[in-house]
Structures are given as structure tokens and as C-alpha cells.
Design a binder for these strands. Structure first.
Lengths: 118, 118
DNA sequence: TGGATACTTTAGATTAAACTAAAATAGTTG
DNA sequence: CAACTATTTTAGTTTAATCTAAAGTATCCA
């Protein structure tokens, strides 16, 4: 049984939240999930799927060559509501883009230097 | 106004959750918080306090040379309840110790290798 | 003013997370 | 079984988070 801490860690990542959203209402194959995230490799998606599964947030069904993933909202409790709220937010897509963008390139903007005294 | 995403990121860290717990019921000075976390420097604590403040999860009051920090549970909503649950858990102290320990040393245990076929 | 206290910030180092490319596993099909 | 498809895993790299040590800022008090 995964801990609350593991759940918090899992949903802290925008990438994992995006995956969770994709499999929230209906199951999808790993391949379909990857297709929806063209900026990372299949391998990267697979690793995040593993993290989510280890946190108990998704379940797997194997059928022929495919693996179907589906969210387990019951593992999230109230947290699920919070995520749905984030996804319903009209500005959500933009925000997510910004979040992912931030993780993609460049040094983070640093705060103004102090006004030198001497 | 900090985003939900920023809040999730902030409470994903066991160290920051520990600080949050310390200032949950009553305000404390930065120094008092640091005293309760002897395994990190004052500077490290100060940085985490900044993160928490930027996420809107704590507020500051300056009085003389001291800075008093206090949690803002209203910024956490339902999440606050979840944290309280974690802290009430009798096993909590042990679990936290384990979490922090894990971040302190050694490579994480990796899963069994596949049984070689050929 | 100068030294002590309380804290923050910076710069650089260390650790951990996330990613890529390639190899491995496993079903399916002929 | 060989080739093909779907996916996972490994090994190594890159990026981001966290930490330390030292310097900086602010307040207090003699």
C-alpha cells in the first residue's frame, strides 16, 4: 500500500498529472498516451507510468500486445477533485504549457540582486 | 496568487512538510524551526521557508531581529486535512524518518532483474 | 560606531529526478 | 522460428532540486 507521501510526490509532477488526465475518464494504451505527448520518448512515458502505478494512482490491463492504463481516482480521494478542478480551468492548457516549458530550457529567472551598498 | 500546481510542488517535499507541521498550530521563528531540524543548515531551512512562502503556504511576521513564520491552512483547503491526517498517523514519525533517511544516503534499491532467457 | 544576534542570499557542490537511445522482453503473425 | 509490433528496462546523460559555506543585511545594544 503506497503512502500518502508517495501520492503527493506522484501528482507533484506536471508530466505525471498530464498522463493522469489522459487516463482519467477512459483507459488508454501506453502508445496512445505517448502519442498525446509528442515531446518525450516512449521510454520516458513508460517510466512515468511506472511511477504512477507504484503510487497506486493507475491500474494496468494487459490485452494482447497492448497495455491499457486507467486512473484510480479512489486512490486519490479528495485530491482527485482538486485535479479535476485544475483540468476544468479554462486557462489550464496554457498553464500546463508554461509549466512544461519551464522544465524544458534555460536557467530559472533569478530575483533581482541586492542594491550594492558600498 | 500561487497556482495549485505550485502548492502541490511545495507539499511534495518531506522537508517542507515537516516545516509546515512545525508552524501549523503556532508561529515559530526561523531559528526555532532550524533547531527542530538539526541535520540541515540554517541556510537550507531559510530557502525552504522561501519556497513555502512563494507558494502561499506560510506567512511571515517580522519582530525585532526575529522572523516568525506561521502556516496558512486556508491556502491548502482540503489538502490541509490530508496533511493533518498524515501527522496524526501514529507511524508518521517513523515514516518521515524513513523518507528523510532515503534522501540522505545510498543508491535506491532497484527491482529484480529479469530472469535471463537464453 | 562596532560587535553580537538573527536571518537571508549567493555561488558552487552534491543529490535526485527526468530524459534519451538502445537493448531487452513479450505477444502476434506467417 | 523469424519478423513485426507494443512496451519495458537499462545505462548513461542532462536538468532541476537541495544542500553547504560563506558573505550580506538588518536590528539591537553597549
Amino acid at each position: 500500500m503506497p503512502s500518502q507521501a508517495a501520492i503527493l510526490a506522484a501528482i507533484a509532477s506536471p508530466r505525471r498529472r498530464e498522463i493522469l488526465r489522459l487516463v482519467w475518464k477512459e483507459e488508454r494504451t501506453a502508445g496512445a498516451i505517448h502519442q498525446a505527448m509528442p515531446d518525450v520518448t516512449f521510454g520516458a512515458v513508460s517510466l512515468q507510468l511506472r511511477s504512477l502505478a507504484e503510487a497506486g494512482l493507475i491500474q494496468t490491463r494487459a490485452k494482447s500486445r497492448n497495455r491499457f492504463y486507467r486512473a484510480r481516482p479512489e486512490a486519490l480521494g479528495q485530491l482527485g477533485k482538486m485535479l479535476e478542478q485544475m483540468w476544468d480551468d479554462k486557462l489550464w492548457a496554457l498553464k500546463l504549457e508554461a509549466e512544461l516549458e519551464q522544465t524544458r530550457r534555460g536557467p530559472r529567472p533569478h530575483r533581482r540582486p541586492r542594491t550594492k551598498k558600498g
